[in-house]
Write a protein that binds this DNA or RNA. Structure first.
Lengths: 137, 137
DNA sequence: TGTTTGTTACGAAACGTTTCGTAACGACGC
DNA sequence: GCGTCGTTACGAAACGTTTCGTAACAAACA
C-alpha cells in the first residue's frame, strides 16, 4: 500500500505546478504572469486549467477572499518520482541505469554536479550493502 | 541546426517503438503479440496505431509482401534523449542533477549499476577538464 | 470453386486536453 | 448610483489519442 492514487498531471498542469512549487501559493493572475514569461497564454486559459486541476485534486484553493489562492496538492519530489517511473517504463524498459546514462551523457554537466552525484552514489553504497562488503576493501 | 524535426511519440507509440527497437522489424501480428503480454489490446488497434505512426514518419514499412513489416524510423538513443529533455523542462526546471538524484534516490540500484555510473562520471571528467586536472591525481 | 483465415483499410466513437469567448459578479472610484 | 475593472464561472470548439467494428481482399485449402 505504498502507492497512493496519485493523479497524472498533464504537461500544461506540470507547468503550473512548477510555478506553485517554486513560488508558493499564488493567484491566477500571478501564475498567468509567470507562464506568460515563457509563452503566450490567455488569462482565462490559466484560470480554467487551475479550476480543472482543483477538481482533479491536483491543487487546493483558498476561496475565502474574492481572488482565490491556489496551492499545489502534490509534493514536488513524489510527483517527479512518479514521472520518472513513467518514463522508465515507457521508454527505457525499466532500466534506471540507461536513463541516468542518457541524462548525463549527451549533456554538459558541471564538475560540481558530478561530484554531488558521486556523493549520492557513495551514500547509497553505505546505506545498502547489497553484495559482499569485502569487495569495497 | 543540430535539432531536427523530431516527432513526439505518444505513450502508446513508445510502447510499440520499444518492441521494434528490441525485436527489430516486425509484423503487426508480432507487435500485437508482444503488447498483449503486458495488457489487453485488440489487433486492429495495434494495426491502426502502426498506420498512424507510419503517416507521422515514426516508423517505415515494407509493404512488398502482403503482410507488411514495420521498422522504427527513430533511433532509440535520440528518442530517449528527447524525452529526457522534455521531462527535464516539464518537471525538473531543467536541472539534470535533480533528475538523476530522483532516479537513483528512491530506487534500489545494484552495485554493478552504481559502478557503471561511476565509470561514466569518470569518463566525463576525463573528456571535459573544466577545472584543475590536478584534483584527479 | 467455395470457404475459411489472416491481413489491410477505413470510419467513427469515446475520451481527454487545451484554448478561448461570453456572461455574471463584486469592489472601487467618481 | 454608475461605470470601470478584475475576477470567477461556464460552455463549447478544436484537436489529438485511443479503441474498435466493419468491410474488402488475398492466400491457402478442402
Amino acid at each position: 500500500m505504498t502507492k497512493k492514487n496519485i493523479p497524472r498531471p498533464t504537461e500544461s498542469e506540470l507547468e503550473i505546478l512548477q510555478v506553485l512549487w517554486q513560488q508558493g501559493p499564488s493567484t491566477v493572475r500571478f501564475v498567468n504572469d509567470e507562464l506568460s514569461k515563457r509563452r503566450d497564454v490567455g488569462y482565462t486559459t490559466t484560470l480554467k486549467l487551475l479550476q480543472l486541476m482543483h477538481e482533479k485534486g491536483i491543487v487546493t484553493r483558498d476561496d475565502s477572499s474574492r481572488t482565490h489562492v491556489y496551492r499545489a496538492a502534490l509534493r514536488e519530489q513524489e510527483t517527479q518520482g512518479m514521472l520518472i517511473d513513467r518514463l522508465l517504463d515507457a521508454a527505457f524498459g525499466g532500466s534506471a541505469l540507461k536513463l541516468v546514462q542518457q541524462a548525463l551523457g549527451n549533456r554538459q554537466t558541471s564538475r560540481e554536479e558530478l561530484d554531488q552525484i558521486r556523493n549520492l552514489l557513495d551514500s547509497i553504497d553505505n546505506q545498502n550493502p547489497t553484495t559482499d562488503p569485502d569487495e569495497l576493501a
